[in-house]
């Protein structure tokens, strides 16, 4: 573990970006990337849970008995997810309606348990924080990239998160939206293309 804190942070942004390199957390990646707003909303929620659970699990890594560690991790993760769900209902209700069931489903997202088990349980708090933050931001960027692509081609619009501003007809008024891309099969095709591009770029 000679890696510096900065390296722990930056690995999540490119070298180990969760959906494309680790191929983890595909359920939300496929399901919520219909629009940029949803993608980024989901990414922020996951980042928050990931940072909190990583820090807490790292703090308690010596207190958690080895035999029941998975159960303890799940309790920690589920608690933070429920906090996010409640806060989102209270302050961003339209986003909550859009994401719906996929917020509680963050609990079973492999990234969270994966980082808890593979990283936070073995490393110091600061390193775990950097790891969680990097992975979370990497995940958010990945979702944003995928959803920008799908929203522009599949719907012809682009909605910016948080400020509520949206552009209609990004590709001009005569553009016929390629609706296939915002449906479920389109998500698989886009993800496949993304993985392909990532592999090509990483091959050098």
């Amino acid at each position: 573990m000679a890696k510096s804190i900065v390296q722990e942070f930056t690995k999540g942004l490119w070298a180990e970006v969760p959906p494309f390199r680790l191929v983890l957390g595909l359920c939300p990646t496929l399901a919520v990337t219909k629009s940029l707003e949803n993608g980024v909303g989901m990414g922020v929620a996951v980042t928050f849970v990931l940072v909190c659970s990583n820090v807490l699990i790292s703090l308690l890594r010596n207190a958690i008995p080895k035999k029941v560690r998975i159960a303890c991790y799940i309790i920690v993760i589920a608690t933070f997810v429920t906090v996010v769900e409640l806060v989102m209902q209270a302050y961003a209700y339209p986003l909550f309606l859009q994401l719906g069931i996929f917020i509680p489903l963050i609990v079973v997202n492999c990234i969270l348990l994966g980082r808890a088990e593979a990283f936070a349980a073995k490393n110091k708090v600061i390193a775990s924080l950097a790891d969680g933050l990097g992975m979370g931001i990497g995940f958010t960027l990945a979702l944003a990239a995928l959803s920008v692509f799908r929203e522009i081609l599949g719907n012809g619009t682009l909605t910016f998160p948080f400020i509520g501003y949206s552009i209609h007809n990004v590709l001009g008024p005569s553009f016929q939206p390629f609706v296939f891309l915002v449906q479920a099969p389109g998500a698989f095709v886009c993800l496949g293309l993304m993985l392909c591009i990532m592999n090509m770029l990483g091959k050098k």
Partner: peptide, 21 residues
């Protein structure tokens, strides 16, 4: 020991969630 650990975790989590709710 295992029982106590999980029970403690659940208690703290439950209390936290109730207050956020």
């Amino acid at each position: 020991k295992l029982f106590v650990a999980v029970a403690l975790f659940s208690m703290v989590a439950g209390g936290l969630l109730a207050s956020v709710r």
